[in-house]
């Protein structure tokens, strides 16, 4: 066979090969939208769509970062606790500076910077322990998960940290307002997702992350700085947890030990539903976005529908998650 033959056969083989694994999550999402529209007329209303997309934003922004960590063969269980801790810290800093700075955008800016810096620092700690100290990501982040959760409970003295009332009206627009009728969380989520998709597919960083997840020895022997890329995936995720927290705090203006509970599992589930491999080596950000939407649509549809016992919500979610993954099984069979 010559090189030219190879090209022709390649194009066809690839097209056939891609179909189901690409369409799987999309089909699941479309099916859900269809079911939702049939069950309730308000489902496709602007208000409901805005609600669903805005509330998806926290998990969604985090899940984009999680896609990189998982693609590089890692895992981060600490993101939910990290978000709670950062939210608590952000509120404490803003409350503490309120008497000196007064309510206003400079103080909001300080709060945002706090969240981003804390996120990067927390991500760096996870990444440092995983790479330099060579501890399993599962164990490291299980540990930090407990640490951040305890810290926020301690900061809140077992109760709830609430943003000072004077600040709330200033910061509220970050969640509730937007431009052209699209709320800020949706805009930020979209920007993060697009940037993530481009980085994953077209930047050396994404390619290196996938190479490391596929076989870190090969990456090392190919002069890739394995530790640095791994560390950066955690730092990147920490930064995005900070971004998500900036969106979260304005919504209710409070943080407690129950903030961000189980976000890590929702984010990981969204990543896997989207077609990223849990063992690493292959990731796609757009799939993660679809995974996040699937998860929040399930909740939304169950709330909008009568006839299903709320006790069964978890079961229905579980079934749909598993179905969405089964739909992509073709990947494995084809390999």
């Amino acid at each position: 066979m010559t090189a030219t033959d190879a090209k022709g056969a390649g194009a066809q083989g690839r097209a056939r090969h891609l179909d189901l694994k690409v369409l799987g999550p999309i089909l699941a999402l479309l099916a859900l939208i269809l079911v939702g529209a049939l069950l309730n007329a308000n489902f496709l209303s602007m208000g409901n769509i805005t609600n669903v997309l805005s509330r998806s934003a926290f998990i969604g922004i985090i899940a984009v970062g999680m896609t990189f960590v998982i693609t590089a063969g890692g895992l981060d269980l600490s993101v939910g606790s990290m978000a709670a801790f950062i939210a608590g810290l952000m509120i404490l800093v803003m409350n503490g500076l309120l008497p000196t700075m007064g309510p206003g955008w400079p103080l909001v800016f300080v709060g945002m910077t706090t969240a981003l810096v804390a996120g990067v620092a927390a991500g760096f700690i996870n990444g440092f322990l995983v790479t330099t100290m060579r501890i399993e990501a599962f164990i490291v982040t299980l540990g930090t998960m407990g640490i951040y959760r305890s810290l926020v409970t301690w900061l809140a003295d077992g109760g709830t940290l609430s943003l000072d009332f004077g600040m709330r009206s200033v910061i509220r627009p970050i969640y509730y307002d937007g431009i052209l009728g699209i709320s800020w969380p949706i805009i930020v989520f979209a920007l993060v997702a697009i940037a993530g998709e481009v980085v994953m597919r077209r930047a050396a960083f994404g390619r290196h992350a996938a190479a490391i997840g596929s076989n870190d020895q090969v990456a090392r022997y190919s002069s890739v700085n394995v530790n640095r890329v791994r560390l950066l995936t955690f730092v990147f995720l920490g930064l995005l947890v900070g971004v998500a927290t900036i969106m979260y705090v304005p919504r209710l203006g409070s943080a407690s030990s129950s903030t961000g509970l189980l976000w890590e599992l929702e984010a990981i589930a969204a990543v896997i539903i989207g077609g990223t491999m849990l063992k690493g080596g292959f990731g796609r950000v757009w799939g993660t976005v679809i995974g996040v939407l699937i998860l929040s649509l399930i909740d939304n549809i169950l709330n909008l529908t009568d006839g299903v016992s709320p006790y069964l919500n978890g079961a229905i979610q579980g079934v749909i998650i598993i179905l969405a993954v089964i739909l992509q099984r073709d990947r494995k069979a084809g390999a």
Partner: peptide
């Protein structure tokens, strides 16, 4: 592919 005479069934092959 040309320089090293790499023979593959198609370009996307694993």
């Amino acid at each position: 592919i040309a320089d090293f005479d790499i023979r593959a069934p198609h370009r996307a092959v694993e």
